[in-house]
Amino acid sequence: MITEIGAFMHKGEGLRLMNELHGDKKILGIYVEAGRTEDLFAFREFGSASENDIVTILVEARHATKIFDLVCSKMGLDSPQSGMVFQMPLHTQPA
């Protein structure tokens, strides 16, 4: 079973996270994309919205909690205005 861990964070942080987790053997894949958000951060660099990074990490389900905690603490996502992280199961066999 594979689990997806997704995280929203400030622009530029996604690449930093990817570089830091690059050597981690438990991780099957990391993807970074850029997006915009209106109320994830209080500071909106362009007035009504701010740019942000979205990181998607694929891991084996048994490592999910560990990686989840790692992402959360490494990027400080539990501090104010820094983003959020979520975990989503990807079932390989039909439910």
């Binding site: 850029a34 915009r36 660099e45 362009f46 919205a49 701010s50």
Partner: peptide
């Protein structure tokens, strides 16, 4: 380029 954060109208 800014994924819509920098609005064209602005």
């Amino acid at each position: 380029l800014t994924n819509g954060a920098f609005k064209k109208s602005m």
